[in-house]
């Protein structure tokens, strides 16, 4: 009961703070300070800019341009990451062999290859897809690897001792142990994939959410630019918090771990 009140209070305070933020922002630039539209905007202007682009179908169009390479790159990262990570955890020798190289690649700022990638693959879907793949594959590799290594040998023995075969061990122990690791990896990977799409679209593109932010920035259309920045923020928050929520819902047993 106490915890419930605490949670509600927290939520209320949070919502209030967000509303307050936008209100203060609006009020300040509605008289207190003269708004220089080439430099700053305010929520009401951003909203009407957003509605304008929404009605004309532009928002949806740009979204679609960004979504395709995102999906391709991310799905490839999931598949490759899980396969490589499983192999590394499953065969100790493979783990030994790949670990240092993967660690080096993971720790280094791989966005730095963006210029090269774009020169080789071009500014279209292939270039962005590859960039997103390169950036988001490593969290999947490492988390799968860690998950497979962390499988509790005792639990494997328990299932074996009760007559379980390899399939039982796989589905009743290994998959449930590793899955939360993979999903948590997905949470990190999403952020990196979004960086990939932004770099790709800032750097050289002719459409897409990232391109629009840069484009409206160049045009000093600050209200539209903010609208697309907020779209990007909403997408990012929806993804990360969505995964977090799914983690809590799907793995309630991890709460105490």
């Amino acid at each position: 009961m106490n915890a419930w009140i605490y949670e509600k209070r927290r939520l209320l305070l949070g919502v209030a703070a967000v509303i307050l933020f936008f209100l203060v922002w609006e009020v300040i630039f509605s008289g207190l300070v003269k708004l220089n539209p080439l430099f700053m905007s305010k929520p009401s202007l951003i909203w009407s800019g957003f509605m304008y682009d929404l009605k004309s179908g532009k928002v949806l169009f740009e979204l679609m341009v960004s979504v395709r390479p995102f999906l391709f790159g991310f799905i490839a990262a999931v598949v490759v990451g899980i396969v490589v990570g499983t192999f590394m955890g499953w065969r100790q020798k493979v783990g030994y062999a790949l670990d240092p190289l993967m660690t080096a690649l993971y720790a280094s700022p791989l966005v730095a290859v963006a210029p090269l990638v774009i020169i080789i693959f071009g500014v279209g879907v292939p270039g962005k897809t590859f960039l997103i793949f390169v950036l988001s594959v490593f969290p999947f590799i490492f988390n799968t690897y860690a998950g497979v290594k962390a499988v509790d040998q005792l639990l494997v023995n328990v299932v074996r001792s009760m007559g379980g075969n390899d399939k039982d061990i796989y589905f009743k122990v290994i998959v449930p142990s590793v899955l939360p690791y993979i999903i948590a990896g997905g949470r990190y990977a999403i952020g990196r994939a979004l960086v990939g799409i932004l770099v790709g679209e800032f750097y050289a593109a002719s459409a897409g959410i990232g391109y629009m932010i840069a484009f409206y920035g160049d045009m000093y259309a600050i209200d539209r630019m903010f609208a697309y920045i907020l779209i990007m923020m909403v997408i990012a928050v929806a993804f990360t918090e969505g995964i977090r929520w799914a983690e809590r819902a799907a793995f309630p047993w991890r709460v105490g771990m």
């Binding site: 639990l155 023995n157 007559g163 009743k172 449930p176 047993w253 991890r254």
Partner: peptide, 23 residues
């Protein structure tokens, strides 16, 4: 087992059912 060996992602009931399930 000395160290319990319960599957952490299974509830009490599902843990107890493990043996029969495997059979």
């Amino acid at each position: 087992f000395q160290e319990f060996g319960l599957l952490p992602w299974r509830t009490v009931a599902h843990n107890v059912e493990l043996g029969l399930e495997l059979q």
